[in-house]
Design a binder for these strands. Structure first.
Length: 846
RNA sequence: GGGGACGUGGCGGAACGGUAGACGCGGCGGACUCAAACUCCGCUCAUGGAAACAUGGUGUGGGUUCGACUCCCACCGUCCCCA
């Protein structure tokens, strides 16, 4: 079918080649892997080692961008390499298909989000196929598919049973433009991450996942994540924000039955707590001022705070505002009555929504005290400072306790422990651990998401929809625009239902789930994409999981990766999967820039992958996107850079086309090449390249250096081919060997042209061909160039046998005229020999 | 303010304590061509030199080492995360 080298077309035609091989792979389902769990069928597990290679699934916007190309090409290289090194490779693809863009389009055009989404998925799929990725298209999934979100809902119900999902009233971030609630993580600098509108706070009943219950587990299991980038782990650690401190109970001075607990990381400073602050959202605040003269002032302050962005409220630069309630709490350490103020820099979100203010030793409390004329007391004195020295500025450093009764004289650490013991003995608190991590707010007042599968019954309250009634399908609605509540609320027939518990009329929950919920378990669903018996089957999931290599953008370092870890732990604790961590090895890629900025429609600097494929071919694009630089770094797009990679593929094409003869003369042995130094050198180069490329792919994730190594090999082979019309047996063998090696190594990066050339050379199914092994016979040279240094400076080089003894090498080095000149007649004080690399002669007083 | 990453030719980058600048882009010169495109060959860190070669050179300043782009400290700059 494929012509031999000499009859290959003169010019490489990517479009034809790529289409041909893509349909060949399709026809034989070349990249499908078993086991996959199917209804009513057993799923026998293979003996071969497995490799689950996964890239973060795309949001189907309708067009892929260069970031996708980079992401999926990297994954594809890894997948191909693993496949050819004897692994059963699972490399699936899906779509994170719920979410706002499709819904916003629906609001504009009236077209149902499902229609928009299906069209976009078809477009994205086409583009991914055009790139020739070795994806298992049999296991494709979409999170917006009822067959998928049925199980998202099912998992929600398991969370609900475990008490890990709950509805509660909360001050939530409200985006006035999108008319929806946002998670804290979706608020950036007080603005909506998506539309950049200033975010407001509102009190609403909301659904939460209690991820904070897993804060410690998420921290502890990072020990299992050896192959994650350290910076991602650091970001997650900071995000979880574990801090050791104490819970301290304060009581109202005139009504000690009312307790207001606080969390503090500085229990040692309790004697210095001279006032008490509450967040404006604290539910107790209105009660404290009810019927008091301060009421109006406090209530208007609360209203103002609700309009102020959270980021602005907690900014260090902003003046500390607040208002007195006229009420007091008792400081449990001193027995003093200290005033309660409301201050907006205290966040309901953080700790308990109330703090003990220690102005002497906390910067913000100090600023507040100064602004409002409150008492500042020193309770810590740094070395050499007397206890009664006035505090001109805040002291947050170490020292010994003063003015603190029983704690006086202790260090900060000792005092912290002592105070915790004291509080515990009196029932006023205890040592505890606090986390910065908040519970995950999952409800969205939006249409295009998985409906939260519960029913609100006047009699029974919140009642879960029975498993058998799942999925709770999204109803048809006429108007997708949010009106402060979910568009689902307008689907009256859908909303009104009967209570599964008592049969009374009831109303469906109209909130849908955050799309991060959908993507927190998709890597499990791939193992059972069509299963209706359950979300997945444990033994199949346990065969594939954890993902051996996960690849995606660093922008997901915190949210998606933390949520997916959380889900996996919960599913593990439910006995549904064996692993506690979903992703064994993680790689985070850099972004592609153009004209110095991230590619975006608004900047008008987008280079559409399709256009590049059309001009140069998918193989060229794949090659270039990885050649741009270290995969983890951001990289700048360059049109001429793409052309360079196309030129390289043209060169490879001509290399194979120009091979001497049409029949592979077979793998050369050292004897075959004896006496032909050029042929031997070429085979050595080929073997060295095998070693380098294998290591770069498998161990270093260094694709650009792997490609450059193949380019070196091609340069070498081309040069030697041009040199000689020498058609001798050794040259023939070496040339074929170099070409075969080139094509074989090139395959993961440029699979179409490699398959074509491989077939021309008489090979078959390169995607199943065992990955080349470097032949050790050709990895050692018989001549090595040794660098000769004098005092660490290179003075000369010498070609010697690798077996030369150190003594001979030193003698040879010392005899070199340039070395003698550099030594200036001095005697060597010392010589250092690095075998096979260099000799360093040390002279003089260094 | 705290934490982290990174600073190398005209550009992207290579060099995992041992020849700094592989590979590619761009540039210059040449061959092929009536001419061009394509392709091929050569040169391309700086300074001096026709060349051989010499000297300097990896943000700045110190340190460790026989030897530092690489390790350590400080500073300057850029970027990221958290406040």
């Amino acid at each position: 079918m494929t012509p031999p080298p000499s009859e290959l077309p003169e010019r490489y035609d990517p479009a034809g080649t790529e289409a041909r091989w893509q349909s060949a792979w399709d026809a034989e389902r070349a990249f499908h892997a078993e086991p996959v769990a199917r209804d009513g069928e057993p799923s026998p597990l293979p003996d071969a080692p497995k490799a689950y290679v996964l890239e973060m699934l795309p949001y189907p916007s309708g067009e892929i961008h260069m970031g996708h190309v980079k992401n999926y090409t990297m994954g594809d290289v890894v997948a191909h390499h693993r496949r050819r090194t004897g692994h059963v490779v699972f490399h699936p693809m899906g779509y994170d298909a719920f979410g706002l863009p499709a819904e916003n389009a629906a609001i504009r055009t009236g077209e149902p989000p499902a229609t928009v989404t299906h069209r976009n998925i078809a477009a994205i799929r086409m583009q991914l196929r055009r790139l020739g990725f070795s994806i298992d298209w049999d296991t494709e999934i979409s999170t917006a598919d009822p067959g998928y979100y049925r199980w998202t809902q099912w998992i929600f119900l398991r969370f609900l049973e475990r008490g890990l999902a709950e509805r509660r009233e909360a001050a939530v971030n409200w985006c006035p433009a999108d008319q929806t609630v946002l998670a804290n993580e979706q608020v950036v600098d007080g603005l909506c991450e998506r539309c950049s509108a200033p975010v407001e706070l509102r009190q609403l009943p909301q659904w939460f996942f209690r991820i904070t219950d897993y804060a410690q587990a998420l921290l502890d299991d990072m020990d299992l994540l050896d192959d994650w980038p350290e910076r991602v782990l650091t970001m997650q650690r900071n995000w979880i924000g574990r801090s050791v401190g104490a819970r301290v109970v304060f009581r109202l001075a005139d009504d000690p039955d009312v307790v207001i607990p606080v969390f503090t990381t500085r229990p040692d400073t309790l004697h210095g707590a001279t006032f008490f602050l509450m967040a404006p959202e604290h539910p107790l605040v209105p009660r404290l001022v009810e019927g008091r003269p301060e009421r109006d002032a406090v209530m208007s302050y609360l209203a103002g705070a609700a309009r102020t962005a959270v980021a602005e409220r907690s900014s260090m630069e902003r003046p500390k505002t607040g208002v007195s309630t006229g009420r007091h709490v008792t400081n449990p350490a001193t027995g003093e009555q200290i005033p309660i103020w409301v201050a907006d820099y205290v966040l309901m979100d953080y700790g308990t929504g109330a703090i003990m203010a220690v102005p002497g030793h906390d910067e913000r409390d100090f600023a507040f005290a100064r602004a409002h004329g409150l008492t500042v007391r020193r309770v810590i004195a740094p070395e050499g400072v007397p206890a009664d020295a006035p505090l001109e500025e805040v002291w947050a450093g170490p020292g010994r306790l003063v003015n603190s009764g029983p704690l006086d004289g202790m260090t900060v650490d000792e005092a912290g422990d002592a105070m915790c013991a004291l509080l515990a003995a009196r029932g006023d608190g205890e040592a505890t651990v606090g986390y910065r991590l908040r519970d995950w707010l999952i409800s969205r007042q939006r249409y295009w998401g998985a409906p939260i599968p519960v029913v609100n019954c006047d009699v029974c309250g919140v009642v879960p929809v029975p498993d058998a009634d799942l999925p709770v399908l999204l109803p048809h609605v006429d108007d997708y625009a949010p009106r402060g509540q979910s568009p689902l609320a307008a689907a009256l027939d859908w909303v009104s239902t009967t209570c599964p518990a008592c049969g009374a009329p009831a109303r469906r929950e109209t909130d849908t789930m955050d799309t991060f919920v959908d993507s927190s378990w998709y890597f499990l669903r791939y193992t059972a994409p069509d299963l209706t018996e359950g979300p997945f089957r444990r033994e199949v999931a346990d065969y594939w999981l954890p993902v051996d290599q996960y690849i995606g953008g660093v922008e997901h370092a915190i949210l998606h990766l933390l949520y997916a870890r959380f889900f996996t732990k919960v599913l593990h604790d439910l006995g549904l999967v064996g692993t506690r961590e979903p992703f064994a090895r993680l790689f985070t890629q850099g972004m592609i820039h153009h004209h110095g900025a991230k590619m975006s429609k608004s900047r008008g600097n987008v280079v559409p992958p399709d256009e590049i494929i059309q001009r140069f071919g998918a193989d060229t694009l794949r090659l270039y996107i990885l050649f741009m630089g270290p995969a983890a770094d951001d990289a700048e797009w360059s049109d001429s850079g793409v052309e360079g990679q196309r030129r390289f593929l043209d060169r490879v094409w001509r290399l194979v086309r120009g091979l001497p003869g049409d029949v592979d003369p077979g793998r050369p042995s050292a004897d075959d090449l004896a006496g032909d130094a050029a042929a031997l050198a070429l085979v050595r180069k080929a073997e060295a390249t095998v070693a380098k490329v294998s290591q770069d792919i498998a161990e270093r994730f260094s694709f650009h250096t792997a490609i450059s190594a193949i380019q070196e090999l091609v340069n070498h082979a081309t040069r030697d081919g041009a040199e000689g019309a020498r058609d001798t047996a050794p040259v023939r063998m070496a040339s074929w060997h170099a070409a075969r090696t080139t094509v074989s190594l090139l395959f993961p990066f440029a699979p179409h042209i490699a398959s074509e050339l491989w077939a021309a050379m008489g090979g078959d199914r390169l995607w199943e061909e065992p990955w080349p092994q470097a032949d050790p016979e050709f990895l050692t040279a018989d001549i090595v160039t040794i660098v000769v240094q004098v005092n660490g400076k290179v003075r000369d080089r010498a070609d010697v046998s690798p077996d030369i003894t150190d003594e001979d090498l030193i003698a040879l080095a010392l005899a070199l005229p340039k070395v003698q000149a550099a030594m200036g007649g001095a005697e060597p004080a010392r010589t250092i020999v690095v075998p096979g690399r260099l000799v360093n002669v040390v002279v003089g007083g260094t």
